[in-house]
Amino acid sequence: MQPTLLILAAGMASRYGSLKQIQQFGPSGETIIDYSIYDAIRAGFGKIVFIIRESFEKEFKEIFEPKLKGRVATDYVFQDMDSFIGKYEVPADRTKPWGTAHAILCAKNAINEPFAVINADDFYGADAFVKMADFLKGEAKADIYSVVGYELGKTISEHGSVSRGVCAVDGAGFLSAINERTKIYSDNGVIVYEDADGSKHELSAETPVSMNFWGFDPSVFDLSQDLFYEFLENSRSNPKAEFFIPIVADEFIKRGKGKVKVLPTSAQWFGVTYKEDAPGVQASLNELVAKGAYPNNLWK
């Protein structure tokens, strides 16, 4: 069975103002999502499921359906505030979506096979898709999930601090903990993270970090539903609280339900954390095309 790729794109319109302006980085106008889908198809993924908002469904399909028709199966799922909330009600002051783990839960009825999850606006690199596809085809089970571990030094922005899920990995290559460090940056050639009190701690450039590229068995949906109800019970009155994927991974490990394998990659990650990052992303993609890693036009 071919695995599925779930792309978290519900936040796109708010970031770009309008989908008409989805940023084009490739030599033939490709977006970052185009490269992820291209890499996924090459690695053996059989279906692409997009998590979007219903308000931009028509625009979104106009962008992606012509390219993907006949190449890969596609499906579209909406992340609505009242999806999968059971007996709970959406608080009147809540405007923010419930978070990335809720986005996954919204895809429950569209996915029945092992699947990977990625952000729409991050470039993950071909190697990461190959490793994830191999894991999903051969190792994913109800008690074994995975996350791609990037080398921290290959995920830093020159234009400001970044937030990363820093992975602690045990001797067998499984995740023992994931700590969200919200302020990581290069300080005179050394990578550091800052605590809330301003104290600095050094991190090695090889430290594995999560860039939200996860591999799951469909069993994650039931776990996510249970945890989401717990989240709503405890945190729904906080308008800024979010239900994130690492919360699910963490509880999966803590509750003894299984293990999360860290899939190391040497791939260069890039994304647009700051608008100043955009020219660098464009230059990096042009360089990969020049080297022959990608064709000049992905969908020709």
Rank of each mutant, 00 (worst) to 15 (best):
52 I>S: 03
106 C>H: 01
38 Y>P: 01
110 A>R: 03
295 P>F: 09
165 G>T: 04
168 A>P: 00
149 G>S: 07
171 G>M: 08
44 G>P: 04
16 Y>V: 14
5 L>N: 02
131 K>C: 03
215 G>N: 06
265 T>S: 11
14 S>H: 10
173 G>V: 12
108 K>E: 15
140 A>N: 03
235 S>G: 12
41 I>P: 05
90 V>P: 00
165 G>E: 06
61 K>G: 12
294 Y>M: 03
152 L>E: 07
104 I>C: 04
75 D>H: 10
62 E>K: 09
295 P>K: 06
46 G>D: 06
298 L>K: 00
138 G>A: 10
199 S>C: 11
79 Q>K: 02
205 A>T: 12
24 Q>G: 11
228 F>W: 05
210 S>L: 02
194 E>V: 13
151 E>W: 00
252 F>T: 01
279 P>C: 11
86 G>R: 09
256 G>S: 13
29 G>L: 06
25 F>H: 02
170 D>M: 04
268 Q>H: 10
193 Y>D: 11
3 P>V: 10
175 L>D: 04
152 L>F: 10
96 K>M: 13
241 A>Y: 07
229 Y>F: 13
54 E>G: 15
243 F>Y: 06
22 I>H: 00
159 H>W: 12
245 I>C: 05
54 E>S: 15
24 Q>F: 04
196 A>V: 13
127 D>L: 07
268 Q>D: 12
103 A>L: 07
64 F>D: 01
235 S>D: 15
138 G>Q: 12
208 P>S: 09
19 L>F: 09
172 A>C: 12
281 V>C: 14
58 K>I: 07
175 L>E: 05
74 T>A: 09
198 G>A: 13
85 I>R: 02
32 I>L: 10
186 S>H: 03
84 F>P: 00
200 K>A: 14
187 D>L: 14
43 A>R: 00
99 G>W: 01
155 T>Y: 01
283 A>F: 08
238 N>F: 13
94 R>N: 05
